[in-house]
Amino acid sequence: MANTNIHITTTINEQPYEFLAPSYMSLLDALREIVGLTGTKEGCLDGNCGACTVNVDGRIVDSCLVLAAEIDGCKVETVEGMASSEGLHPLQKAFLEEAALQCGICTPGFLVAAKGLLDNEPNPSEHRIRHWLAGNLCRCTGYDKIVKAVQKVSSEG
């Protein structure tokens, strides 16, 4: 078989990591299967649902469409890195208070994506929020409460 393991040195949620991953393995699988961070979810494996959204070097990406090999030397942030010793991230709190999740499978992706927005644009319009989050599918909520939760954080921000 034409493949090798690739040695990857990276920072995930501000922790240094070093591991070997097969050359064809996605970042999603490396996070879930090798690093053991299963908060990032699989929904489609073809970039259409956003459940696997993580942040790489300040940009949100679908981790199913990134090879683990490509993140050597990068900074990765996942949902597991959002809460801190001070407690939940404001977005996580708002999602709970606004009941912005039902089954919750889309939630990690939405949280990481929404954080990516608010980190750069603290006061987006409703349209901008909906546009930014269009790469994340939710089948349970109709998005209404998700958008409200993000708006809540941006107005408090």
């Binding site: 970039g47 956003g50 959204t53 790489v56 940009r59 949100i60 990406v61 679908d62 469409l65 990134v66 994506a113 990516g116 930014w132 269009a134 790469g135 994340n136």
Partner: peptide, 9 residues
């Protein structure tokens, strides 16, 4: 092209 995540790549 795609959504924000796709456009990052």
């Amino acid at each position: 092209i795609g959504g924000i995540q796709i456009q990052s790549r």
